[in-house]
């Protein structure tokens, strides 16, 4: 293995070797195209959210956020994420432990199955629960007879959210844990550490940034899910409306400022996610790099 500097320190700007870079004009052109693309597709919609939210002044903006239904939707969204993310955290760790640390038959099939929610339309994820738990679904009549509410209530919203977000943590951890191999754990075990101890003392410190990174992504997606939750929520104001659904409702009530104000909450959350994510990613790369060295 050849010696290399840590990733990212190699810079064309510091080492203008003509053979490995493009003429200045082309460089500016490429950078210009990239920036234009990012501006048109990412920056413009981002700015539009805030421009619309504050279009009638800060007072109207605050009033929209203070609304009781907005607060109720915020409550529901936070609660949903607070249940879905820890569940998926446990799943992610368990799945990546079994997949990354062991060799067994059907492993790649299992990995593909874990990826399913990435590719399945959120609408389908909503429909499957309706088919199962709806009044005319497979379990619906029994649930109704026992007075258990699943769809059009909080459990259904949580279920749909869990479905949509379960791959995120597992997906981050599997390659990381695979790259780390099993030597460290084996060493700890041979020194007499218990299984749990090994996991907590050896594995967890190694994967903590990757884990954080996955949790953040999972959380952002859990709070922002629209399609799946929309199919299953019932849209009861102040009760089963999550924040993204509330945005749609306000939008449909001609309350555009309100809609964008609430949307801006989600956007701020997204931006915070990006900052934390960049940081975790940076640490995460160091983690990965430490293994490769």
């Amino acid at each position: 293995m050849f010696q290399r500097k840590s990733p990212g320190t190699w810079q064309t700007a510091n080492r203008p070797v003509l053979a490995t870079t493009e003429p200045t004009l082309i460089r500016y052109l490429l950078a210009g195209v990239a920036m234009l693309f990012v501006t048109l597709f990412l920056l413009a919609p981002l700015a539009a959210v805030f421009a619309q939210a504050f279009s009638e002044g800060i007072a109207v903006y605050w009033a929209a956020l203070r609304d009781a239904d907005t607060l109720a939707s915020l409550h529901l969204t936070l609660m949903t994420a607070a249940i879905a993310v820890p569940l998926n955290l446990v799943f992610g760790v368990a799945a990546s432990w079994s997949i990354a640390k062991f060799e067994f038959l059907g492993k790649s099939l299992l990995t593909t199955l874990i990826d399913l929610p990435f590719a399945v339309s959120p609408v389908i994820s909503g429909i499957i629960y309706v088919l199962f738990f709806g009044l005319h679904g497979y379990l619906g009549p029994w649930l109704a007879a026992h007075n258990i509410e699943i769809i059009f209530a909080v459990p259904g919203i949580v279920l749909a959210t869990v479905f949509v977000t379960f791959p995120f943590i597992a997906r981050e951890l599997i390659p990381l844990m695979q790259a780390q191999g099993t030597e460290e754990e084996e060493a700890a075990l041979s020194l007499g550490a218990g299984g749990w101890q090994t996991f907590l003392r050896v594995t967890l410190p190694n994967i903590k940034w990757g884990l954080l990174y996955g949790v953040i992504l999972c959380n952002a997606r859990a709070m922002g899910e629209f399609g799946a939750v929309s199919v299953i929520s019932g849209h009861i104001r102040g009760l089963t409306n999550t924040v993204p659904l509330h945005v749609e409702i306000l939008y449909n009530e001609y309350n555009f400022v309100g809609a964008f104000a609430v949307a801006s909450l989600l956007t701020i959350l997204a931006l915070i996610t990006l900052v934390v994510k960049s940081f975790a990613e940076w640490k995460f790369k160091q983690e990965l790099h430490a293994i490769r060295m």
Binding site: F133, G134, L135, G140, F152, G234, H235, I236, R237, L239
Partner: peptide, 20 residues
């Protein structure tokens, strides 16, 4: 009194599926 609003078809569908 709680309210749920939406396109009429969607709303009826939800009630059929168990929206109480």
């Amino acid at each position: 009194i709680r309210q749920s609003h939406g396109g009429a078809g969607k709303q009826a569908r939800a009630v059929i599926d168990g929206l109480e």
